[in-house]
Design a protein around this nucleic acid. Sequence first.
DNA 1: CTGAAAGCGCTTACAG
DNA 2: CTGAAAGCGCTTACAG
Lengths: 330, 330
Amino acid sequence: MVTIKDVAAHAGVAFKTVSRVVNNDPTVKPKNREKVLKAIEELGYRPNRAAQMTRRKKSGVIGFIADELLRVPYTFDLIRGAQDLAWKHDKELMVLNVNVNKYSVEGAVNHLFEHRVEGIIYAAMYHREVSLPLQFKEVPTVLANCYDSYGRYPSIVPDEKEAAREITASLIGKGYKRIAFLNLNENIIAAKLRKEGVEQAFINANINLDNLLVESVIFGEENNERSVTRSRAEDIIKNFKPDAILCGQDPMAVEVYFVVQALGLKVGKDIGVGSFDDWDIIPTLLQPELTTMALPHYEMGQWAFNCLLEERTEPVKETARFTLNSRQSF
Amino acid sequence: MVTIKDVAAHAGVAFKTVSRVVNNDPTVKPKNREKVLKAIEELGYRPNRAAQMTRRKKSGVIGFIADELLRVPYTFDLIRGAQDLAWKHDKELMVLNVNVNKYSVEGAVNHLFEHRVEGIIYAAMYHREVSLPLQFKEVPTVLANCYDSYGRYPSIVPDEKEAAREITASLIGKGYKRIAFLNLNENIIAAKLRKEGVEQAFINANINLDNLLVESVIFGEENNERSVTRSRAEDIIKNFKPDAILCGQDPMAVEVYFVVQALGLKVGKDIGVGSFDDWDIIPTLLQPELTTMALPHYEMGQWAFNCLLEERTEPVKETARFTLNSRQSF
DNA sequence: CTGAAAGCGCTTACAG
DNA sequence: CTGAAAGCGCTTACAG
């Protein structure tokens, strides 16, 4: 590989001058700069990052630990959010996928430390509490889509309650006044907060809570969940007779659409359907297209990266707002 | 940060001895090894990768250029395949997301060169031909899920024809003998090859080709495609009266399920449905669950990585076999 | 089995 | 504005 010295020899200057040109030092005579630039071009020189890092004693690397992240497609926006900013600020984003069976969190952190990361973003697959090993204290750390048990790090999570309030208010605003909310597994924090948000919307609109049915249709432990969406949706439509169904996640909405059609009803006409996530292509694959609250993954990824960039370390717990993607299902 | 010299001082040996222990050199006296290990533990020493790279003149980094990869969730397995092997062989996989608007391929390659990558995997979002800039010739390059116009690099693509033959033969084996194949956009290579495979299965089974209908239901240019799946499926079921429908991708199958149900028929009973991709959760979200040919993304990612590891550079064009995921839709 | 010297490709700190 | 020296944290090559 061609080095700074090769370029210097080719250009007829000291190698330090080449270094100056590469680093945009303005104190180089235009004539010399030109000679160097020409030599760089002709020789195809590219600075050696490892050597730069060694001497500078700064790595320019931010670590991104993705906790089981990639099992759910849309969570990838968390990485994208951080990645786009990293590129912009000429930083390297080193993404490590962690899951129980393969790469332990400790292993990932050690790996990142060997690269002398300047900060770490720890992101979870779904909104939840995590307890991180003490190692993280050695370097600035920010949590995205999760928060730590002891509140030791800055963290950002989706504003579940406000999202639930907003979409419910939107339903109510369009005249729906008897709503069934098929909630996520009651073990997860999102289920609890969303229930509060939905109820809040009813209270704000002065509608009797008798017109609201909230029921978890996903059960079981992580990695071994089962859904009773179809059977419960059918039963609820028949007996509770809601004029709208709110689903805890878009895949549930697919099932609800099938149930509604099987009962001879039409989504968006006989019954409104709303949902959460904006899961990949599901919302636009359905007909009518699904109105859903899009998770703010991209924004959370960006917020986390900015937090590190600005060297903020106060253990704030920030929330990010969902976006209402209005389509035709209600 | 603590260095090799700090450890040496703490352990009372020469710093070269610490280097030997860190690099598992067997010629260190057990007693000294122990002292060094203890010092490393106590001081929390971690080798500095950048310094190692600089001196070794080997980066241990493999570049992975993902061409628009992340718009389709399951393609992520391409990265995972390479990633898992990288971890195993103690290499770094540097993943760069490329798309026309943001990071050009040239920019990505330059970036990788600054890190002195030992090889590059170039992966495409869908099976297609690509033409890479000449820069790639400077370093071993392997293509995954695509092949280059001039056949200059080793590449691996899904075996579309065999997959189509296999699932069609499977349908025929279960007694289906009048099949409609709703194909992908006819502009893409997969559509052409799969059509051949489906026809081959008919020929092998001695079934008259009058019982096969192949029709593209996706039109338009890349990034601006439209699907006529629903209307065409309905029309074909009514008029061609197939006993099975084969879909070019799983999202199509979702639409076909809705059409079948609307016509008062049952998938898996009145009409068989098969598909391609194994797209995220779609196959198991449907009821009955969808039988589909799973794309070999993980395997292609692994093959590409191994190719670089074994320093194979002959421009072979390898194919990877799909896996038939049998469920209940036929 | 161990160590002192030299060097990787660069940047820092300083002299002119 | 330019350059010669020193040094980043390691490994290589060699001597003992």
